[in-house]
Design a binder for these strands. Structure first.
Length: 111
DNA sequence: GAGGTGACGACCC
DNA sequence: TGGGTCGCCACCT
């Protein structure tokens, strides 16, 4: 565990996630695509898994899968993603974001 | 050093 | 149109 450096890909993921505006969400695939790796959506999710050790404040709760489903909530320790998102004004029903197309935030648009 | 896994996504049937 | 399977690339054991 002496590797404290973050891969460029990871750094890009963290940067984009950190840019997600409040009350908006994005998908792993969208971030991956923004980085030029639309097929590496899993890597984005994996990056989030390690993000807590690099950027513990990272709003990973604003990142959901392409279906708007709050997957990986079990990885969260403490406040569930649903509560955090609802606190930002996002409506969620059974871990499913309502009006997902309305709250969806495209990183490519911000780039 | 090698294999298996994974916060997903797209393609195929 | 819907369900099932494979692929991606990096991290972890």
């Amino acid at each position: 565990m002496k590797s404290k450096e973050i891969s460029p890909f990871y750094q890009q993921v963290y940067d984009i996630v950190a840019l997600i505006p409040k009350g908006r969400v994005t998908s792993y695939g969208a971030i991956a695509k923004a980085l030029g790796a639309p097929r590496s959506a899993r890597l984005v999710g994996y990056a989030m898994n390690n993000s807590h050790q690099f950027n513990p404040q990272l709003p990973a709760h604003r990142v959901v899968n392409r279906k708007g489903l709050l997957t990986g909530q079990h990885h969260f320790h403490g406040t569930p993603m649903q509560t955090l998102l609802e606190n930002e004004g996002i409506v969620i029903k059974d871990l499913q974001i309502q009006n997902f197309d309305l709250v969806f935030w495209d990183p490519l648009e911000n780039l």
